[in-house]
Deep mutational scan, measured.
Amino acid sequence: LKKVVALYDYMPMNANDLQLRKGDEYFILEESNLPWWRARDKNGQEGYIPSNYVTEAE
């Protein structure tokens, strides 16, 4: 899975979204639905995130 790091905080707009915290790492599960990607956080929560809020992890 592709790993990304959040560049900004993101508060979910609806139940399908995943909250982002700046500096945290996330795994990308699906990239087909631009600009929204399906992601999983370190706690196993899954949801959609804005792809322009993250960058690929080193």
Rank of each mutant, 00 (worst) to 15 (best):
S32Q: 08
E58R: 11
A15P: 14
E31A: 12
K42I: 10
Y10L: 06
K3M: 10
W37G: 02
E30T: 07
E25M: 14
K2H: 07
N16H: 13
E25R: 06
Y26S: 00
L1R: 07
L18D: 00
F27V: 10
Y48F: 13
E46Y: 05
V4I: 04
I28G: 00
G47C: 02
Y53V: 04
A15R: 11
D17R: 10
D17E: 15
F27E: 10
G47I: 02
W37A: 06
N14G: 12
S51V: 10
Y48G: 03
R38D: 02
K2N: 04
N52W: 15
E25F: 15
E31R: 09
R38W: 15
V54D: 00
P12F: 02
V5C: 06
Y8Q: 10
L7F: 04
Y53H: 07
E58A: 14
M13V: 14
R40K: 08
M11I: 14
I28E: 00
L1W: 14
Y10T: 03
G44R: 04
W37T: 07
L29G: 02
G23K: 03
Y53W: 07
K3C: 08
E30I: 07
D24A: 09
N52A: 14
E30M: 07
L18R: 00
K22S: 07
K22A: 13
M13N: 11
P35N: 15
T55I: 14
D9P: 04
R21A: 07
G47R: 01
L18W: 02
P50K: 06
P50G: 03
N16T: 14
I28A: 03
L29Q: 03
G47E: 00
E30R: 06
L29F: 06
A57E: 08
D24G: 07
N33E: 14
Y48V: 06
K42C: 08
R21D: 05
S32C: 12
L7C: 08
D9I: 02
D17F: 15
Q45K: 14
N33I: 10
L20S: 00
D41S: 08
E31M: 13
Y8W: 12
L7N: 04
S32N: 12
M11F: 14
G47D: 01
A57F: 12
L7Y: 03
R38H: 08
L7H: 04
N43D: 12
E56I: 13
Q19W: 09
D24R: 07
K42W: 07
Y53A: 08
S32V: 08
V5R: 09
G44H: 05
Y26K: 00
K2S: 04
V54C: 04
N43Y: 14
S51M: 11
P50L: 11
Y10H: 05
Y53C: 09
A57S: 12
L34K: 13
V54M: 04
N16Y: 13
E56L: 14
V5S: 04
A39L: 07
K3I: 13
F27P: 00
K2G: 04
E46F: 04
I28K: 02
R21N: 10
R21M: 08
A57R: 11
R21I: 15
A15E: 12
S32D: 09
Q19H: 09
D9Y: 03
E58L: 14
Y10I: 03
W37V: 14
E56K: 11
W37N: 03
A39M: 04
Q45T: 12
K42L: 10
Y26F: 05
P12V: 04
E31W: 13
L7T: 05
N14K: 12
E58M: 13
V5Q: 05
G47M: 02
I49D: 00
L29K: 03
L18Y: 01
E58D: 13
I28Y: 01
K22D: 02
E46I: 10
I49M: 04
D17N: 11
W36P: 05
G44C: 06
T55M: 13
L1H: 09
A15V: 12
P12D: 02
K42D: 05
N16M: 11
L1T: 07
Q45F: 12
Q19I: 08
Y10E: 00
M11W: 14
E31T: 11
K2C: 06
L29T: 07
D41A: 08
A39S: 03
K42V: 10
P50Y: 10
V5T: 10
Y53M: 11
F27S: 06
I49A: 02
E30P: 03
E30K: 06
P12L: 02
N43A: 10
R21S: 08
Y8C: 14
L20T: 02
A57V: 15
A39Q: 00
N43V: 07
P12G: 06
R38I: 09
V4E: 01
L7I: 10
L34V: 09
R21Y: 13
L20P: 00
W36R: 12
K22I: 07
P35F: 15
V54L: 04
I49Y: 01
N14M: 09
N33D: 14
V54R: 01
V54K: 01
P35C: 15
D9M: 03
A39V: 12
M13T: 13
Y8L: 09
R38P: 06
Q45L: 12
L20H: 00
A39R: 01
E58T: 14
Y26M: 02
E56T: 12
A57Y: 12
I28F: 02
E30N: 08
N43E: 12
A15T: 12
L29S: 03
Y8I: 07
A15W: 10
W37H: 04
L20A: 01
N33P: 14
N14Y: 12
E25H: 14
P35I: 15
S32E: 08
P35H: 15
Y10R: 08
K2I: 07
R38A: 05
Y48Q: 07
D24Y: 09
M13G: 09
Y48K: 06
K2R: 14
N16L: 11
I49Q: 00
N33Y: 10
E58P: 14
Q45N: 15
A39P: 00
K22P: 03
A39N: 00
E30L: 07
Y26Q: 00
P35Q: 15
N43K: 09
G23W: 05
L7K: 06
W36A: 06
G47Y: 02
R38S: 05
E58Q: 13
Q45W: 08
D9Q: 03
I49H: 01
D9E: 05
G44T: 02
Y10W: 14
N33C: 14
E58C: 13
N43Q: 10
L34S: 15
E56R: 10
L1A: 07
K3P: 04
F27M: 09
Y10Q: 03
K3R: 14
V5W: 11
V5H: 05
Y8P: 00
Q45R: 14
G23S: 04
N52H: 14
Y48H: 05
L1E: 06
T55E: 10
L20I: 05
N43T: 10
R40A: 06
Y10N: 02
L1C: 10
K42F: 08
Y48A: 05
S51Q: 09
A39E: 01
Y53P: 00
E46T: 08
N52L: 09
N14F: 11
D9R: 02
Y10S: 03
A15G: 10
T55H: 10
I28M: 03
N16E: 12
D17W: 15
A39D: 01
V54G: 01
N52R: 11
R40Y: 06
P12N: 03
S51L: 06
K42M: 14
D9C: 05
E58K: 12
N52V: 09
V4Y: 09
E58Y: 14
D41V: 01
I28L: 09
N16C: 15
Y48T: 07
W36C: 11
Y8D: 06
A6G: 02
G47P: 00
R38T: 07
S51F: 15
I28D: 00
Y8H: 09
F27L: 11
E30G: 07
E25I: 15
A57I: 15
A15K: 13
L34C: 14
N16D: 13
A39H: 00
D24S: 08
E30D: 15
A6D: 00
R21K: 13
R40N: 02
E58W: 13
R38N: 05
S32K: 08
F27K: 04
L29D: 02
E30F: 09
L29A: 03
V5G: 01
E31D: 13
R38C: 09
M11T: 14
N14T: 11
Q19G: 10
P50H: 08
P12M: 03
S51H: 11
